[in-house]
């Protein structure tokens, strides 16, 4: 019998934390996204008006949303589980009649919820700046939700692995953000020289952005079925790692 009440309690606790830091949580990503529009949209957009028939400002919207989803999901989920480890309040969760699945549902669910809300807010904000049309709303939402969950799981893993605040920030800062910028947030990878196009395929974020962009404009760097497959693959990998963590008690229990 699952203890969903416990998962709910953790979820509520985490959402309350988001609520308390609403300024950092919501306003700052929206602000920085708007700045991207102003800077990139205006500066570059005046030279590159269109990419593959799509207005440049609109073209970067899926990339910008992905950028936020990836960084916010990992940062939030990692902080959510790292903080009780840091303060010692984790003792209560470890002593409760609760399984790893329920702990993960609580923390990952809350982090993913927050990312999804942020993604939708940024999407809404984008409508103010650029003409947007969403060709496949279902797939758009599917990418949004699956990516948020996957990267919240990744954040959860980081939060368990980390044993200091530096480690907590290092992966989002040194890996995820660069990969997102290089993964076609602001350009189509087809503009790259052929060799770089090949290398880019090792960047997992390319598949996420490409699939997400396809759901808006039906243009993509890689086939959208490949993107969907890759998204599910990353999700499966993260789930497997989380499962292993709870099975072995890795870093949670001495």
């Amino acid at each position: 019998m699952m203890n969903l009440r416990a998962a709910g309690a953790i979820y509520k606790f985490e959402m309350a934390r988001t609520g308390r830091t609403i300024w950092q949580s919501v306003v700052s990503p929206v602000l920085s996204t708007s700045l991207y529009f102003v800077v990139f949209g205006a500066a570059i957009g005046s030279r590159i008006t269109e990419i593959e028939g799509v207005n440049y400002g609109a073209f970067i919207v899926p990339g910008l949303i992905m950028l936020t989803l990836l960084t916010q999901s990992t940062m939030n989920a990692s902080f959510g589980i790292y903080f009780p480890r840091f303060t010692g309040t984790i003792y209560e969760i470890l002593s409760a009649p609760i399984s790893g699945i329920e702990i993960a549902i609580g923390y990952v669910g809350a982090a993913a919820t927050k990312s999804i809300i942020l993604g939708l807010i940024i999407l809404a904000t984008s409508f103010l700046f650029v003409p947007l049309h969403i060709a496949h709303p279902f797939w758009m939402l599917a990418f949004l939700v699956l990516t948020s969950i996957t990267f919240s799981l990744l954040g959860f893993i980081i939060g368990i692995w980390a044993d200091g605040f530096e480690k907590l920030q290092i992966i989002p800062l040194l890996i995820i953000t660069p990969l997102t910028f290089l993964g076609g947030t602001f350009y189509s990878t087809s503009v790259l020289p052929p060799l770089w196009q090949k290398i880019t395929l090792f960047n997992p974020v390319v598949y996420l952005i490409s699939g997400f962009r396809w759901s808006f404009f039906e243009i993509s760097d890689v086939s959208h079925t490949v993107s969907i497959g890759m998204t599910l693959l990353f999700l499966a990998i993260c789930l497997a790692v989380v499962w292993w963590i709870f099975k072995t008690g890795y870093k949670l229990k001495n």
């Binding site: 009440r5 416990a6 953790i10 606790f13 209560e92 969760i93 409760a96 009649p97 609760i98």
Partner: peptide, 9 residues
């Protein structure tokens, strides 16, 4: 209340 929830009450 959080503790109570954790313990499924």
């Amino acid at each position: 209340s959080f503790s109570r929830g954790l313990f499924n009450k």
